[in-house]
Design a binder for these strands. Structure first.
Length: 484
RNA sequence: GGGGGCGUAGCUCAGUUGGCAGAGCAACGGCCUUUUAAGCCGUCGGUCGAAGGUUCGAAUCCUUCCGCCCUCACCA
């Protein structure tokens, strides 16, 4: 490795000694690689720039593959077409170097569109070698830690992140067209709220105050509802101080949407329309695959109440009126661990999460959750034991929850107090505090509203078929390495 | 944090029962004026993740540690 770098450093010194700059500046391109193919004209003069990814020498000539963001174009380098400085460069070219080339288009004997190079500039000399050209870069750790190499070596990675960008753009377009306002609210919060996750803690020196990276933008967005911003969304990062997994990264991208005078059902329609629109636009189809599984996003999606879903799954019609002991026995029989302190509802929910949810492959809205499970949502008027929320499940995992938001400040305060009382003792200062600023805003009057949140990384996984969240995040979190 | 798997050259990978660390690509030198993973001849390149132990002898067996992957737990 050090030898390879030393060799290339020597080439840099030699070029510099010849008065050539191995790290060139601005280069005027007249065409991208893809256009050389699509707008081919025999003899047309073009200038291209990009990275050398292959070099095939043939004595006094050489073929090189030059890659830019649009694709690949072959260069044909003949010594008798070049002179002086260019020959010095040619003699010291390495794979991975970034060069500019000028010449005319032609087609080789074997039928490949190429550039007969008459001008060659070195734009950036690579000191380190590229991953192997045929097998590419497979080692997952290197791919995640050195994403630049992954992007160079594995074409489909660049394609996936382009697709991610399009998905995000289509989401914004969809919401903007419907009159939603995109906003940015604090990432650094004195009291982390809006979710029940462990936050990252930090400290703001100038204010001499502890701060937290946000776990959700929810409370700030609701303050905007109070302020008269009736249709609002934020599409940005959340941070949660939790474990890593195939579907969890500590910083992840969340879309939260609120619509005044709407409710849970308004949001359900919005989410369905949004995902259908985005999938149709960026994938051109509503038929997706996740591994071996086929997923059909054609609307309308199934809607089923939580109680029905669980009872049907278990084949026990009056499940919810069975005694706790019987529920516990059923759960144990399914291999679940049941604590003595768990209520019937909690036991049921364990069954729901572990046994029922994984079977929901096609998009399904689960409605009317038991009130105990979702303390911050609004109760159903006709059924105070249930709460007016939905959860969208696709491919066995939660993709988006939705709520009829609570807008009663007194009830909100009671629930905060209840929640604060149940916090574990290790909660840092600030975490257990009640967000008085938020309550004050609510007391000014918050319109009834529907709210929803979509995990963008998981949506991208769904739409791209990626198996791990690390494959849809450019720089996923890994344990820092001591030295390299 | 628990369980399982993996870690060998810059990259992709072999390595038998514990017996001289290998191949292809990349790199370096040579030949070659239309190649396509160009070809041919030659050369260089290793803390076998780290440390310790067993052994005449360890990439290989044992222990501990580090990193990654899978999985469970945690997780609005």
């Amino acid at each position: 490795m050090e030898d390879l770098r030393a060799q290339r450093r020597k080439k840099i010194e030699e070029l510099t000694a010849l008065g050539l700059n191995p790290f060139g500046g601005r280069f005027r391109r007249s065409a991208e690689a893809a256009a050389c193919h699509s707008d081919y004209e025999e003899g047309k003069e073009v200038s291209v720039a990009g990275r050398l990814t292959a070099l095939r020498g043939h004595g006094k000539t050489a073929f090189a593959d030059l890659r830019d963001s649009s694709g690949k174009i072959q260069l044909y380098l003949r010594r008798d077409n070049l002179e002086g400085a260019e020959l010095e460069i040619l003699d010291r070219l390495d794979l991975g170097d970034i060069v500019g080339a000028r010449g005319e288009l032609f087609t080789t004997r074997k039928g490949e569109i190429s550039i007969m190079v008459r001008g060659l500039t070195l734009l950036s000399k690579a000191l380190r070698p590229l991953p192997e050209k045929w097998h590419g870069l497979k080692d997952r750790e290197t791919r995640y830690r050195s994403r630049h190499l992954d992007l160079i070596a594995n074409r489909e990675v660049a394609d996936l992140f382009r697709l991610r960008s399009r998905i995000v753009r289509e989401i914004r377009d969809f919401l903007d067209r419907r009159g939603f306002l995109e906003v940015e609210t604090p990432m650094m919060q004195p009291i982390p709220g809006g979710a029940a996750a462990r936050p990252f803690e930090t400290f703001y020196g100038a204010l001499n105050a502890p701060m937290f990276l946000r776990i959700a933008p929810e409370l700030y967005l609701k303050r905007l509802l109070v302020g008269g911003v009736e249709k609002v969304y934020e599409l940005n990062r959340n941070f949660r101080n939790e474990g890593l997994s195939r579907s969890h990264n500590p910083e992840f991208t969340m879309l939260e949407i609120y619509e005044a005078y709407g409710d849970c059902r308004t949001m359900m329609e919005l989410v369905e329309n949004l995902i259908v629109k985005v999938a149709g636009t960026v994938r051109g189809t509503l038929s997706l695959t996740a591994g071996e599984t086929a997923i059909d996003l054609t609307p309308p999606w199934r809607r089923i109440r939580y109680r029905e879903l669980v009872a049907d799954f278990l084949g026990i019609g009056d499940w919810f009126s069975r005694p706790r002991e019987e529920m516990a026995a059923e759960a144990s029989g399914r291999g679940l661990e049941i604590d003595a302190g768990m209520s019937g509802i909690e036991i049921t929910h364990e069954i729901y999460e572990k046994c029922v949810e994984p079977t929901l492959i096609q998009p399904t809205f689960v409605l009317d959750f038991p009130a105990h499970l979702v303390p911050l949502a609004r109760l159903k008027e006709d059924d105070p034991a249930a709460v007016d929320v939905f959860e969208l499940v696709v491919n066995g995992t939660e993709l988006a929850p939705g709520y009829s938001e609570l807008n009663d400040p007194l009830e909100q305060r009671r629930r905060f107090e209840q929640q604060a009382g149940s916090r574990p003792p290790d909660a840092a200062a600030g975490k257990e505090k009640i967000d008085e600023d938020f309550l004050e805003a609510m007391e000014t009057g918050m319109p009834p509203a529907g709210g929803t949140g979509i995990g963008i990384d998981r949506l991208v996984m769904l739409l791209t078929g990626a198996a791990s969240i690390r494959d849809v995040i450019l720089f996923p979190q890994l344990r820092p390495k001591e030295n390299k």
